[in-house]
């Protein structure tokens, strides 16, 4: 399982696929939870949009496309690019 909840932190590790969206959704409703993407290699769009929608802090510094391009859009706060679609 690449999504685990430990000490109020949701750890996403390795390649996280669409089949884990249900689990992530469940974990996100935990009070005061945070998300650690440090070990995440790829985030499926279904998971990414959950992180975008959920007001939870995100920690960790993933590499690759996720770290370089996607990370700024994942927090629920208005993102600096102001993309409104």
């Amino acid at each position: 399982m690449s999504i685990t909840l430990r000490d109020k932190t949701i750890h996403l590790e390795g390649r996280c696929g669409v089949e884990e969206a249900e689990i992530l959704l469940g974990h996100l409703s935990t009070a005061d939870v945070r998300v650690d993407l440090g070990g995440c290699e790829h985030l499926h769009a279904a998971l990414a949009q959950l992180l975008m929608a959920a007001p939870v802090p995100i920690t960790g510094e993933p590499g690759g496309f996720l770290g370089t391009w996607l990370l700024p859009f994942l927090s629920a706060q208005p993102n600096p690019d102001g993309n409104t679609g």
Partner: peptide
């Protein structure tokens, strides 16, 4: 790159993850 919601995000309680 810019990634954003097409429509405003629903609350987690109403969220259809798929």
């Amino acid at each position: 790159l810019a990634v954003g919601p097409r429509e405003p995000w629903p609350t987690l309680a109403d969220f259809d993850p798929y």
